[in-house]
C-alpha cells in the first residue's frame, strides 16, 4: 500500500539543499514600543509591529520578535553607519542596539523536503507559516530563528555553539530522504 523507493543516493540532494550563508551584520534592537517608530526613522529602518512579521527597506531587513524587540539584518558594509546612527539617536531615544553579528550562523534550507527536514526538530506548525514571515522557536532544544522566505526556502539562524548538533540532526534527516523513507 505504501510505495517505498530507495537506493537513489542523489535523491537527498534534490530533495533538500542545506548551505551555510555568508555572515551579515546582525543587531538586536530593543526599544520601548511607543518609541519604535521615531527610532526607526532615525536609524533609517522600517520596523514591523506585528510579532513574526518582516519588513525590508533597501538591503536592511527587520523582524519583530517581541513587543520591544527586533532583529535587524544588514549587509556588512552598513554596520558602522548603523552603529553610528544608533549612537547619535541614543540620547533622545534610549534603546539597545547590540551588534550580535557573530552570535548566530545562518543555514539556508531549500528544496521540496526542506519543510519536512525542519519538522524533525521544530514543534511548531511550519506549514502554516506565511511566506515572508519569521519566528523565534527551538530546533531540538536549540534556540533558532526560522525565516520562511519562500514556499520551499527557509533560513534558520542557529546560535553558533549549537550548530554542530543541529547540523548532525539535519544530516540524519537527509539520510532518510536518501533512503527514500
Amino acid at each position: 500500500m505504501t510505495t517505498q523507493k530507495h537506493n537513489d543516493t542523489d535523491r537527498s540532494a534534490v530533495m533538500i539543499r542545506i548551505e551555510e550563508l555568508v555572515p551579515q551584520a546582525r543587531f538586536s534592537l530593543r526599544v520601548r514600543s511607543e518609541r519604535a517608530r521615531v527610532l526607526s526613522e532615525s536609524l533609517g529602518l522600517a520596523l514591523p509591529v506585528r510579532i513574526g512579521s518582516v519588513e525590508r527597506k533597501g538591503e536592511v531587513e527587520a523582524l519583530c520578535l517581541g513587543p520591544d524587540e527586533w532583529c535587524v539584518l544588514a549587509p556588512d558594509k552598513r554596520r558602522d553607519a548603523l552603529i553610528e546612527a544608533s549612537r547619535a539617536a541614543y540620547a533622545k531615544i534610549p534603546h539597545a542596539f547590540c551588534d550580535v553579528s557573530d552570535r548566530e550562523v545562518v543555514l539556508r534550507l531549500s528544496g521540496p523536503e526542506a519543510l519536512t527536514a525542519l519538522t524533525t526538530g521544530i514543534a511548531r506548525d511550519i506549514e502554516s507559516m506565511e511566506v515572508g514571515s519569521a519566528a523565534r522557536t527551538a530546533f531540538d532544544t536549540a534556540t533558532v530563528i526560522l525565516w520562511r522566505d519562500d514556499e520551499n526556502s527557509f533560513r534558520m539562524d542557529v546560535w553558533r555553539s549549537f550548530l554542530p548538533h543541529v547540523r548532525a540532526l539535519l544530516d540524519l534527516a537527509q539520510a532518510e530522504f536518501a533512503a527514500g523513507l
Binding site: 547590540c98 550580535v100 553579528s101
Partner: peptide, 8 residues
C-alpha cells in the same frame, strides 16, 4: 535591556 552575547 538585556542581550545575551555569549555566542557573539
Amino acid at each position: 535591556w538585556l542581550t545575551s552575547m555569549t555566542e557573539h
